[in-house]
Design a protein around this nucleic acid. Structure first.
Lengths: 245, 245
DNA sequence: CGCGATTTTGAGAGCCGTCAAGATACGTGG
DNA sequence: CCACGTATCTTGACGGCTCTCAAAATCGCG
């Protein structure tokens, strides 16, 4: 039975950045979880419009949400990291209006959308946490929209790199000034509404100007984080411990 | 006492597009509501970073959420219409990271953020509705991000006009092919990440090409809605009856 | 009637997109 | 260990969509 595979050893339970479950909550989540899913990097987790009976919490690995137009233009909506909830829309509306693709091998905690109602009824604290996560996603989207709508290519890239660095740091995937982002410049371009060529040229200029180093494969080093933040008007906010599932 | 001013006559209670409260829920919301607020068109409801003890449901009038950069570049994040929840982030995080400004005179139902926990504990159905609304906002933002990130000026304007028309229709503010949008071309520009001048020129071309008519003051007439939808790859979705507070 | 907000139009510039081709990195099989 | 193919990254040239600057026309309101 996979349903209790490793809740007790769940990496989030012992991480101070997340708030703790009570024993009773943990017990509920153990039963609420219906399985574990592993998919490979590059695989598709959700296909737009397909309706899914599940939603997930990411245990490990990265992914991204995106939408496509008929002529293959692609907009990356957000990046998904460990601890994030994926596919909540499936639980609210039964179908998603975006797709999700794995950037690296992914391990997911599986939940049944039809049981979410039990959770709301019996565990208001967890229900609140879900709303919290949804609200947080909304904030990120607000930030992205400002980025794509108003900033120049140079500012956009600087801003996104800082954001990804900080988010990765929050889940313990970054060192002092370095992250291994499992993404290509193509992903950056599609997330920022820029062409691949222009993204590359602009990123190269950021390197030449001494802001960052970018080694193939998404190995990012922030050389002058302060400068990047100033130039892109980036401001961090590290809210209180975040909830998960 | 304003707290029960007109819940019984609440316009949403008799509108089929919204789902109904049970008598018990209605009773709870009556008490949950702490007052009613009226503000003038043009006034600011929320200021970014100020922390607010309240959040609201819009009873009548329009508003918009936005973020600004230091040099006055402004990104409109979304438009707010009757039935929408405003400032939920204040209830989750205590402070908002965006501002909200009234487009017309606004009547709002006032709630105390510190009581939201009562709601989650005693009324899971309403808690679920709040998450639903939050998820819906997320969908809209996804849609906007795709719009701003990938579409041309012409497509963006077409898409936004259709979206606004449909949303206004959902709350009964549009006739068959006409809406009075309380916005200026400046608002369109800031919502789409375009300059005012280019927005005007492009909109004018849409008029000349027979897609729409735009009378001063936001009086919009859709002449060829099908054509607009085709050219901007717009697709409606009218989900089931939506909840409100 | 006059003034501010909004809308329009023109001209010129520039950021960014497209097209093209080469360079580099990486996994696979010989 | 080398050959080769594919994915990714780079760079250059050129064009155009959209921006900024500027000014005029129109609308709405007191």
């Amino acid at each position: 039975m996979p349903s209790s595979t490793n809740c007790d050893a769940c990496p989030f339970r012992t991480n101070d950045r997340y708030h703790r479950f009570t024993e009773e909550e943990a017990e509920f989540v153990r039963k609420f979880k219906s399985g574990e899913l592993n998919i490979q990097g590059g695989a598709t987790l959700f296909e737009e419009d397909a309706d899914s009976p599940h939603f997930y919490t990411v245990l490990s690995g990265w992914a991204f949400r995106y939408k496509m137009l008929a002529d293959a233009r692609r907009q990356i909506l957000n990046f998904v990291m460990p601890g994030d909830l994926v596919g909540l829309q499936a639980a609210m509306f039964s179908k998603l209006d975006h797709s999700v693709e794995a950037l690296s091998d992914l391990t997911l905690c599986v939940f049944e959308r039809e049981h979410i109602w039990d959770l709301y009824q019996s565990h208001p604290t967890l229900a609140f946490d879900i709303t919290w996560l949804s609200s947080r996603e909304e904030r990120l989207l607000d930030e992205y929209l400002l980025n794509v709508g108003q900033r120049s290519a140079r500012e956009r890239i600087a801003h996104l790199l800082l954001l990804l660095f900080d988010r990765a740091g929050t889940v313990g995937l970054a060192s002092r000034n370095r992250v291994k982002l499992p993404i290509t410049q193509n992903h950056l371009a599609d997330a920022l509404g820029l062409s691949l060529v222009h993204t590359n040229k602009t990123l190269r200029k950021l390197v030449k100007d001494g802001f960052v180093k970018w080694h193939t494969g998404g190995d990012l080093e922030l050389v002058d984080a302060k400068g990047l933040a100033r130039m892109s008007s980036y401001s961090v906010d590290h809210p209180k411990p975040r909830p998960f599932i």
